[in-house]
Design a protein around this nucleic acid. Sequence first.
DNA 1: TAGTCAATTCGGGAAAAAGCGAAACAACGA
DNA 2: TCGTTGTTTCGCTTTTTCCCGAATTGACTA
Lengths: 132, 132
Amino acid sequence: MTPDLRTLVERLKAVSHPLRLRTLALLASGELCVCQVAEVLEVPLSSASEALRDLRRAGFVTERREGRWVYVSVVPEAGASSLLKGLIEEAGRLPEAAEDLRRARDIRALEVPVVCSRVQGASSRTRKPALP
Amino acid sequence: MTPDLRTLVERLKAVSHPLRLRTLALLASGELCVCQVAEVLEVPLSSASEALRDLRRAGFVTERREGRWVYVSVVPEAGASSLLKGLIEEAGRLPEAAEDLRRARDIRALEVPVVCSRVQGASSRTRKPALP
DNA sequence: TAGTCAATTCGGGAAAAAGCGAAACAACGA
DNA sequence: TCGTTGTTTCGCTTTTTCCCGAATTGACTA
C-alpha cells in the first residue's frame, strides 16, 4: 500500500507541472473527452493528450472509450490518497482553475464534443471561429 | 493565502526529487545541521546544501545559525498546509525514510556535529574512517 | 472504400534540472 | 594571523523535461 520512494517521486513529478495540475483540477469537476480538455485549457491537442498520458501513468486518471472519443476522469480511489485529495483541493482554489472551470461549464452545456473539430494541431488562440 | 499556480508548482517540484523528499522526511524528526544531513543521507555535502537551499526557497525549511553550524528544520507553519502535512506523513512511511531515521538516531546520540569533518566533498561510501 | 475526425505517437531542438568536484567564504581557535 | 572546519557557490557535463507541428492510428460514416 505504501509506495516506494521512486513511485512517490514519480507521482509528485506528474503534478509538478502547470498544465498537468490544471488538468487534474479540471477533471475533478467531472469527466471530459480529450479534445474538450484541450479546448478548455487552450492548448494543442497533442499537449493535452500528453498531459493526460502522464497523469494516467501516475495513476491519477482513467479513461473510458466511447466511439471515437476518449473520456478521462480522476480515478475513484484518488480520494483514498489524502495527499491527492489535498492537492486537488488546493489546486481547485487557484484562480487559473476557476477560469478553466468557467470555460468547462460553457463547453459542457453544448451537446457532446461539438468542440473537437476546431482544434487539431492549432493552438486555440489562433484557430478559426466557431462551427455552424 | 492561496498561492498562485506558479508558486504551487514550484513547491511541488521542490519535493519531486528523491533526495529533497528524504531530506524533508528526515527533518520532520527534528533539526539537524547541514553536515549531519549529508552524513545521514550519505551524499556529498554540496548536494545536501543544495537540496536544503531548494527546500528553503520553496518555504519548507528554515535555518538557524549557531557558530559555524547551520541547523535546518521544517518551518513551523508547515503543519498549516494540509498538503505538506500529508506529504511528510506519506514520505515518513517510506522504507528509505525509516533507514535514514535509524542513522539519524545514531548520529544524534553523538555530541554535537563530531561527524562533520568526515565528509567534505566525498560521498560517505568512499570516505575515510572515523576521527580520533 | 474513401473520407473525416478524435487521439496518439514521433521528431527534435531548446530549456531546465541534476550531480558533484573544486574553489570560495565564513566563523572560529591556537 | 594561520590553519581548521562547516557551508555555500561555481563550473561544467550529462540527463531529463518541455513543447508543438507533423505524421500515424483507429473508429466511424457516406
